[in-house]
């Protein structure tokens, strides 16, 4: 009995510690964002003066309405394109045997080890050559490239997990390959797509180096790039920085909490079946 009680006690302690470590920084962010006097130097766990002023400023003068829209466009486009490309590629590598298959797989694996800052300069020059600078689409293409390798690896596991018999049954029923793909493979890989979508979404949403390098035009900034403007030569507007950060973090949090269950289902499913 004492054993159970003490272990419950330690579990509770652990629970609180992890909760505190996870949410502590988030609370500081929120309290400053809601603090009308965020810039006068006093800082604590609760705002000294509750106010939505910072949010109003960030959304209005800070231009975050535009930035949020840009980020959403970029993130969603990245998710859609990279999911589509990764799905097709993962079917190719897990369902077919062909020359250079192993080379393709190794390339996909190696490519994700490349430090992305190393690519800033050449990608910048390349984007310039292609006239993609300052275009949100240029950024989308880059983010697709960054999220593809993991998406391919993840989906490859899901595709391999689908029993071949289902496929063959479809052929027996007279279905063509595209039909079989659409009605058999696609629905079964859907949970995997949820997982990869989350990751592509976050790549695109949080990325900061390429956003400030590629975009020179304030109208096309994404949120991560837009945050920089509150650090000015004339002082740092901490209230605005934290309100902006909250606006950046919030959609990702909501997205996460919604997909959390599906995500861990997806992860576990991938684990068991893979």
């Amino acid at each position: 009995m004492t054993r159970t009680a003490s272990s419950r006690f330690w579990l509770a302690i652990g629970f609180l510690v992890v909760l505190g470590f996870s949410l502590g920084p988030v609370l500081i962010m929120l309290s400053t964002a809601f603090d009308g006097r965020a810039n006068d130097g006093s800082r604590g766990l609760l705002p000294t003066e509750w106010s939505l002023e910072n949010f109003a400023f960030v959304l209005d003068e800070g231009g975050f309405v535009t930035y949020l829209r840009n980020s959403l466009v970029v993130a969603l486009a990245t998710v859609v394109i990279s999911s589509a490309l990764a799905l097709l590629a993962s079917v190719a590598v897990s369902r077919f045997r062909f020359r250079f298959r192993t080379s393709v797989l190794i390339m996909v694996l190696v490519v994700q080890m490349v430090p992305l800052e190393a690519l800033v300069i050449p990608l910048f020059i390349q984007a310039k050559t292609l006239g993609m600078l300052n275009h949100l689409f240029g950024l989308v293409v880059v983010y697709v490239a960054f999220s593809l390798p993991f998406a391919i690896w993840t989906l490859r596991g899901f595709v391999s997990a689908i029993p071949r018999e289902l496929e063959e049954a479809a052929y027996v029923d007279g279905a063509s390959w595209p039909r079989m793909f659409w009605s058999i493979l696609f629905p079964l890989v859907a949970p995997g797509l949820v997982a990869t979508s989350v990751f592509s979404f976050i790549t695109a949403w949080n990325e900061f180096v390429f956003a400030i390098t590629f975009l020179n035009d304030q109208d096309s900034y994404t949120v991560a790039a837009g945050l920089r403007q509150f650090f000015t030569q004339y002082g740092t507007d901490w209230g605005a920085v934290m309100a902006g950060s909250t606006l950046i973090t919030l959609p990702v949090m909501i997205f996460f909490v919604i997909v959390q269950k599906r995500l861990s289902d997806g992860l576990v499913a991938g684990a068991v079946k893979g």
């Binding site: 962010m29 950060s245 959390q260």
Partner: peptide
């Protein structure tokens, strides 16, 4: 509850996270 909390920690962008940590350890205030 705890998974949600750690998801939130994960969700906070590195840019924001860095600003918060700098802010927490700021030398004067």
């Amino acid at each position: 509850i705890l998974t949600s909390a750690i998801m939130v920690a994960w969700a906070m962008p590195a840019v924001t996270g860095t600003y918060v940590w700098v802010y927490l350890f700021d030398a004067r205030d």
